[in-house]
């Protein structure tokens, strides 16, 4: 690990999927965790929003001495103030979640930051392996637990995937005592958002298995067909080797053994 990299983790207010209550956002928590792992000393955790939000104490409870808040109204556009903040900071690595859990959750913020700062962006990072000589080796999370190694030059922005190390437990005491640095910034209103209509999510109709059967018999068959997986094959009397072969063939067929 390098002697010192300046890491900034951006955090937002999450939303619990079941209760809808505010919480430490899953991925943002991981972004802080990754930041803590890179350098506990030179990590700055930044939130653009309401400094009174109690959830911020949950981030602070991960062992942060302080947390920087750029005050913003709920309908504010965090982008310009974050760009200003990052320009004036000496940040070399900026970590964010992939998508926020509240608001638009578009996931655009890190890309816009990268664009405006002219920094590269690495998406869905699982781990930052090394940082040396102005470049970092990072592992990107691919589906099914696969990883891709990418080298990126500093400074850069990384979005942190759910595959990254889980955020450590937040402790009540340190969270309570952490110091909040509330900076004085101008807020910019997000105009476009005002024109949107926002409503509770309607359940999406599940796509029915539309059977493009040309004949009645085909339709009948499609409707009554046994669901896949029902009633499998049972092998009893074959030899162990034959049974193993049958299993192995299935593994090959499903391409899990390649």
């Amino acid at each position: 690990m390098p002697p010192k990299v300046n890491v900034v983790s951006l955090v937002s207010i999450g939303r619990h999927p079941q209760s809808g209550r505010s919480r430490r956002a899953e991925q943002d928590g991981r972004a802080v965790e990754l930041g803590l792992k890179l350098s506990k000393k030179s990590l700055t955790v930044v939130h653009a929003g309401d400094a009174q939000e109690p959830v911020l104490r949950q981030y602070a409870g991960m062992g942060l001495d302080s947390l920087t808040v750029l005050p913003q109204p709920a309908d504010g556009d965090a982008l310009p103030i974050l760009v200003d903040f990052l320009k004036s900071s000496k940040a070399q690595v900026v970590l964010t979640g992939v998508r926020a859990e509240s608001g638009e959750s578009s996931g655009m913020l890190p890309y816009l930051l990268a664009e405006q700062l002219g920094w590269p962006l690495v998406p869905r990072v699982a781990e930052i392996l090394t940082i040396k000589q102005g470049a970092a080796e990072v592992l990107l999370a691919l589906p099914r637990g696969q990883r891709r190694s990418v080298i990126v030059s500093l400074p850069f922005i990384a979005t942190v995937d759910n595959a990254a190390a889980e955020a450590r437990q937040t402790a009540f005491g340190p969270g309570l005592r952490a110091d909040f640095k509330v900076l004085d910034v101008n807020s910019v209103k997000d105009e476009a958002m005002a024109t949107w209509q926002i409503s509770a999510a309607k359940p999406r109709p599940k796509r029915l298995k539309v059977v493009k059967a040309k004949t009645a018999a085909d339709r009948m068959k499609a409707a009554t067909a046994k669901p896949v997986g029902g009633g499998g094959k049972v092998m009893k009397n074959e030899t162990a080797a034959e049974k193993a072969q049958a299993i192995f063939d299935l593994l090959l067929e499903e391409k899990v053994v390649r």
Partner: peptide, 23 residues
């Protein structure tokens, strides 16, 4: 250990988080 260090082992952290977020 829990309030100051945040070191409730195994599922402890998750359970506490759930309790806080969903009662």
């Amino acid at each position: 250990l829990t309030l100051e260090k945040g070191e409730t082992p195994n599922k402890g952290a998750q359970v506490l988080e759930n309790i806080i977020a969903t009662d």
